[in-house]
Amino acid sequence: MTLRAALRVERGAFVLDVDVRCESGRTVAIVGPNGAGKTTLLRAVAGLEALTRGGVELDGVAIDGVPPERRRVGFMFQDGLLFPHLSALDNVAFGQPNRRRAFDWLERVGLGDKASARPSELSGGEAQRVAMARALAPDPAILLLDEPLAAMDAATRNEVRRMLKTHLDGFAGPRLLVTHDPIDAAILADEVVVLDRGAVMQSGTPAEITARPRHPWVADLAGLNLFRGDGDGGTTIRTSVGVTLHAAAAPRGAVYAAVSPRAVSLHLDRPAGSARNVWSGTVAAVEPLGAVVRVRIDGTPSITGEITAASAEELHLEAGCAVWVAVKATEVDVYPA
């Protein structure tokens, strides 16, 4: 079964215009900054948002004319959204009138003993597990998950994520997962679609996306420095900020250049080594992260480096210091834009 959402939703100044596919048995993570239109996309697939154009197809059959309650969509909402006036079991049984089966679902998420508890008596993690059981119990054709792990502390998050992984793997149909957490995407998704301002910026496997980002937001998540520029077909790139970067190879035309923070070395004096890319800048911020220190440098271009705590100590780095930046040409990964 294939879900295809090729649609356009216009709401005031906001426009969502995407073409997203998801095969049965696969999870597509929709990621992107706030206001990118991630939730709007899920709501459009569910039928809760009116389409301006386009449609939603399941195996080539249009379902956008079907009322939401008959689309057989399992929807997990951000904050669980359990019915406060119903017990955990009644919540699950809302869409699965067979109470025996509803109870089985409650047991499958490990909450058989909380059947009669009201949502207000459940912890955040428990409530989200009930919400998971409730979404799956009616045996939906499609599963839509809107930030199912967002409103949780770290420990609960891990536990619920594990359970979610189990149940996603056991769900036969296509599933779309909205998340802003790269870990969720990496663990739960087979494919990632990056959305920004209502349009798809990039899509691919989590590994592809994080290795070769095509959007500053993704680069930030992946912890990479991302530059845009023009390759000359040899080894140099003219970046959009006007400086030249040297790489091992640079295809001709518009390119992205990614540099890992770990490939950035910092010096107090102009380094005499073999690094081809050398420039000076000012330390903008120093953030210790355990054994390493993350240093943001303002310059042309600005860049973020990660050095060991020991070398940071040695260099006496603090905001406002003048430093030299060096990056080897072989550490600049260039790919077509």
Binding site: A46, L48, P67, P68, E69, R70, R72, V73, G74, F75, F77, L81, F83, P84, H85, F94, G95, R134, A135, P138
Partner: peptide
């Protein structure tokens, strides 16, 4: 949103009203 949650569980307008909307304003 609770009404939408009910809709996603297969409840038509009347059932949403009777089982969710009305109990919430009880």
């Amino acid at each position: 949103q609770l009404e939408e949650a009910a809709q996603m569980l297969g409840a038509g307008p009347w059932r949403v009203f009777r089982r969710v909307t009305l109990p919430l304003v009880r």
